[in-house]
Write a protein that binds this DNA or RNA. Structure first.
Length: 548
RNA sequence: GCCCCCAUCGUCUAGCGGCCUAGGACACCGGCCUUUCAAGCCGGCGGCACGGAUUCGAAUUCCGUUGGGGGCACCA
């Protein structure tokens, strides 16, 4: 029944799949994962940017490889010619580099198992197909797409498995010969053996499938190209992959792949199917859930390190101390084999909170640097008013516009020395308030543009008791202040309420509105100080003028 | 329809037969602090999907049901 005589696969690592019932194993009962120099791979399809879910898969592969001193292979699965683009490859590589996921073998990093693009591996696939054909594991099938379609619907109507009937399985050699020479198109199918296929999943234990629910599947199309299931297996075998870490949407493909491994007489790797990343509606995370790519998140002012840690800990126990972990920390301490198995929902709220925590854990200087980079990227310095209006609609709106601009390759604006210095001076004032970097703009954008009042703000100012007197007195006081420092400013401002016989709240409100045109700003004394004496006085006087 | 995976607060999770009156985090609500907004601290709300079985004892083991997801392609 097995012409090749290779049907007793010896798994390269881990326990051989037992024939017993699939049973969930507890962590401490799980066999230790082979830890000596595993080879793992991340195999994205370049049909677009790097999706956050894929990024997560890449991350886990990377961590696992580094943790066990293994090799991290990057392979481009671009066999779908109609959807794959070189531009997408460039984007994906860039995102991976941004996350620090450097690969050991793959595009740009030649290795002994290349090439690393499927479109360049055609001859390798066909060699293997030829071998499988010789050993009788494959047979030609002449069924047309229409026949198959009819078969499928009939099977479904009967409540049977909708798998191939095996019609061409036992075609006589002469008939095959005759139809092939007649030029009839045919595909190549795998002769799936009787019985069941069991494979081991590090997270779930053994998973079993009855082989008759798999059906003889196509491995080579009538145009001579090879299908995904064959390509992955041949790639993984020839690249000597020992651990396949991928999304659990691949679980149902796995038995087919195992059948090919076995037909090839190759060792079956260990599998780790990780839970998928879902949106808040419990569907696979997609564009309608908002940001699904790293670049859009960073355009909103999320830090790459935070996104990376968030993605990592989504299916694991959360601990505040990991918010500021580095990639090296993850490699040192994160255990991929203890991941949960239920799908994870991407929660932007928690990511935001984490980002805020991260920012607060860093120094003022660090924040200043990130802010300058960020504001430069979003074009704030070139157009503080326009970008400010965008940001007022929410950081996501801003990020979307920035992202579009970047894909059109608009040149970013460059900060001049004055803007950069001002940003760094403001950084300490907003340090406790910023969650994502974009929050800086509604909070402190007013420092960068002339005093401006919205009708509502002006109304507020007019409604504030004693505003005119407050503004005039404060302006005069600030002008004559011997020392221009925060304590002096504070002393002066605090003396105002008693002298003017006003409530402190009213005084503070008038000054805040008067200097910024806003009701929310960083600390009043610090803000006046950063503004500088001339600006501070001028603004308060301008505001006072609006009241007469 | 068939096959597979999954199932603890709204969300991410802890839980390994008695330490569970189910613990933590985000979000939400309230309080404190306070010149605004935050941050911070304190408190509150809120969950084992359902039904059987095993057991002295079940969130935990087994079976079923329900629900969600994925696959069943000459897509990857």
């Amino acid at each position: 029944m097995c012409p090749s005589g290779h049907c007793s696969p010896v798994p390269r690592c881990g326990k051989p799949a037992s024939g017993g019932p699939a049973q969930r194993m507890r962590y401490d009962e799980r066999p230790m994962v082979e830890t000596s120099h595993p080879r793992v791979r991340f195999a994205p399809s370049p049909t677009g940017y790097l999706h956050l879910g894929s990024a997560r898969t890449g991350l886990y592969n990377f961590i696992f490889a580094r943790q066990h001193e293994g090799t991290f292979v990057l392979r481009i699965e671009d066999t779908d010619l109609s959807r794959s683009t070189d531009q997408a490859i460039v984007q994906i590589l860039a995102s991976m580099k941004e996350m620090g996921l450097q690969w050991d073998e793959g595009p740009g990093v030649p290795g002994p198992h290349g090439p690393y693009r499927q479109t360049e591996r055609d001859s390798i696939y066909h060699e293997h197909v030829a071998r499988l054909l010789e050993t009788g594991h494959l047979y030609p099938c002449f069924c047309t797409a229409e026949e198959l379609e009819a078969e499928r619907t009939a099977a479904q109507a009967d409540g049977r498995d909708s798998v191939y009937s095996g019609k061409c399985r036992a075609l006589a050699a002469e008939e095959v010969q005759r139809r092939q020479t007649a030029g009839e198109p045919y595909t190549l199918r795998v002769r799936v053996p009787e019985g069941r296929t069991v494979f081991h999943d590090i997270l779930r234990g053994d998973v079993a499938f009855e082989n008759d629910t798999i059906g003889d599947f196509i491995v080579q199309r009538s145009d001579g190209t090879v299908t995904y299931n064959l390509a992955v297996v041949v790639d993984d075998v020839t690249m000597e992959i020992t651990h396949v870490i991928r999304g659990d949407d691949h679980i149902s493909n796995t038995p087919k792949q195992v059948v090919i491994y076995e037909a090839l007489g190759a060792g079956v790797p260990e599998f780790l199917h990780m839970p998928l990343l879902f949106g808040t509606d419990r569907k696979k995370l997609s564009k309608r859930h908002g940001a699904t790519k790293l670049e859009q998140l960073t355009a909103e002012g999320f830090l790459v390190d935070v996104v990376r840690n968030y993605l990592c800990f989504l299916s694991a126990e959360f601990d505040e101390s990991m918010i500021t972990w580095t990639l090296d920390d993850l490699v040192r301490s994160f255990d991929v084999t203890k991941l949960g198995t239920s799908p994870s929902i991407f929660d932007p709220e928690k990511l935001r909170w984490m980002n805020g925590r991260y920012v607060r854990a860093m120094t003022d200087e660090w924040l200043g640097g990130r802010l300058v980079e960020y504001l430069t990227r979003v074009g704030f310095y070139g157009d503080p008013v326009g970008v400010g209006e965008l940001a007022a609609q929410g950081s996501q709106v801003l990020a979307a516009v920035v992202e579009d601009a970047e894909s059109e390759r608009l040149p970013p604006t460059v900060p001049d020395e004055e803007h950069e210095a001002l940003t760094r001076e403001i950084a300490p004032l907003v340090h406790e308030k910023v969650e994502v970097l974009a929050d800086f703009i509604p909070m402190a954008g007013w420092f960068f543009r002339p005093l401006e009042f919205t009708p509502e703000a002006l109304e507020r100012l007019q409604a504030t008791a004693g505003a005119a007197a407050t503004l005039a007195t404060a302006a005069a006081g600030l002008r004559d202040l011997p020392e221009w420092d925060v304590p002096a400013i504070e002393t002066l401002v605090r003396e105002l309420p008693p002298t003017l016989e006003l409530k402190p709240k009213a005084v503070f409100a008038a000054l805040r509105l008067g200097m910024s045109g806003q009701t929310v700003t960083p600390g009043l004394f610090e803000s006046l100080w950063v503004l500088g004496r001339d600006q501070a006085v001028a603004r308060l006087e301008q505001a006072a003028a609006r009241l007469v």
